[in-house]
Amino acid sequence: MWGLRSVASTVLTLVLFATYLGIGALAHDSHFSLGWALASTLFVWAGPAQIILISTLGSGATVVQAAIAVTVSAIRLFPMVVSVMPMIRTPQTKRRQLILATHFIAVTLWVECFRLLPQVPRERRIAFTHGLGCGLLAVCLVATALGYELAAGLPQLFGAAILLLTPLAFLLSTARNCRQLADVLALVLGLALFPLVSMLHTGVDILISGASAGTIAYGVHWWREQS
């Protein structure tokens, strides 16, 4: 219940709501059914992957092409899950008890786990994550349905404001969670390196800039530990 209540305590809930309004509208405009749109929110549960899935399928790509585009966007979930799992589990926790919590991990939950979990007793952290995940998911299912129904009525400026919410909120909530020098460096270098790497047009620009910026940040952290 504690986790569920935390849904109301974060501005990221509003950001997710707005993002999923947009995804619902996109699904409508790409001629998917409402049930399909809701199922994609429930099972995929990652905004960028859903936008990629809907827009690639909507533009006539094959299932294989869409699957490749989605899986490239989803690689980022891997380091997120690895870094948050040690905070959630106890030494007695079995892997299968973490499967649902793992499914809930996406950018928002990752950020909020780093902010909120330290205040939660360790044995209650799985339950907390489930509460937070279910709450956010419920909010997003409502937003998906609402966006789907409203679709045509959304003005362009409203759309622009929704899209600006994501970078603003992600940047500020990540900045707030930075504890070590490595985190700050990773954030700054990640922002700076992406525009450079994107000139290469590799299709996996974000992964290249992210892996290099993160590794440099870690290198500096390691070097300072040594000296």
């Binding site: 870094s83 990752w110 992600f170 954030l187 990640g190 992406f194 974000i206 992210g210």
Partner: peptide
């Protein structure tokens, strides 16, 4: 290191 990479990837998404 893993957390730094995850943070930098997120920074890339923002950028």
């Amino acid at each position: 290191w893993v957390r730094a990479v995850a943070t930098a990837i997120l920074a890339g998404v923002i950028a």
